[in-house]
């Protein structure tokens, strides 16, 4: 590790890319912190956009263009939209929601720190003093595609199967709930048939 400060690469005379990488990283980290600490729910979602966007910029700085755009497409364009959609369906107020606080915050903090520590340890342990040469693009679409579909095709397919399973599971869950509700509704109308007949047409209309 001590060798890292020495030649041929070193962090004592950082290049422009490295400086901006660090700065963007700080912004991303700050945005992530605000995301979990702010008491305004929708603001949290929007700060999440900043954090995810910052990550995309980091990918770009590492010349992994494809991953960066996919990050934007999937996370900012879809996941956050889904999140906001969900939030709009709730009673999220404009301004602070005092009850938007969790008693598990210490547990969450512990888990987060532990996960971060693990990841950092894994990355540091895996790559040590390896340096990426950023002058030539490293993560172009062609390279990523070749890697994904030649070296990593099995994990890729396994992931696809996992997602498919999740999809099917979601359908099954929603259908079951639907069927139950339908059955209940049927039973309800069946039971209410005779009193409805006794009641006036107005009541019948309302039941419909």
């Amino acid at each position: 590790m001590t060798l890292a400060a020495a030649a041929p690469y070193g962090f004592l005379s950082p290049t422009g890319v490295e400086v901006s990488f660090l700065l963007v990283g700080l912004v991303t980290f700050a945005a992530a912190l605000v995301t979990v600490t702010t008491k305004q729910l929708v603001h949290a979602a929007l700060w999440l956009v900043v954090a995810l966007g910052g990550l995309a910029v980091e990918y770009l700085l590492l010349t992994a263009e494809f991953i960066a755009w996919v990050q934007v497409l999937i996370y900012v364009g879809s996941v956050v939209v889904l999140l906001l959609f969900g939030l709009m369906l709730t009673k999220a107020p404009i301004g602070r929601s005092p009850d938007a606080d969790s008693g598990n915050r210490w547990a969450a903090l512990t888990v987060a720190v532990a996960a971060a520590a693990t990841l950092v340890w894994v990355v540091v342990d895996a790559f040590r003093t390896q340096w990426i040469d950023l002058d030539a693009p490293q993560g172009t679409t062609a390279v990523t595609g070749a890697m994904l579909f030649q070296h990593w095709v099995l994990p890729f397919e396994a992931l696809s199967v996992l997602l498919l399973a999740a999809l099917v599971g979601a359908i099954v869950l929603s259908r079951k709930a639907d069927a139950k509700a339908d059955a209940k509704a049927d039973a309800g109308t069946g039971g209410a048939e005779s009193p409805a007949d006794a009641a006036g047409p107005a009541d019948k209309e309302r039941q419909r």
Partner: peptide, 24 residues
């Protein structure tokens, strides 16, 4: 390089503006 992805990704972001306007 990944122009198609870039274009579609960034276009998707534009909708965030409508969502922000709608909620705020």
């Amino acid at each position: 390089d990944a122009g198609l992805f870039f274009v579609l990704a960034v276009m998707g972001v534009g909708v965030l503006g409508s969502l922000m306007a709608g909620w705020a």
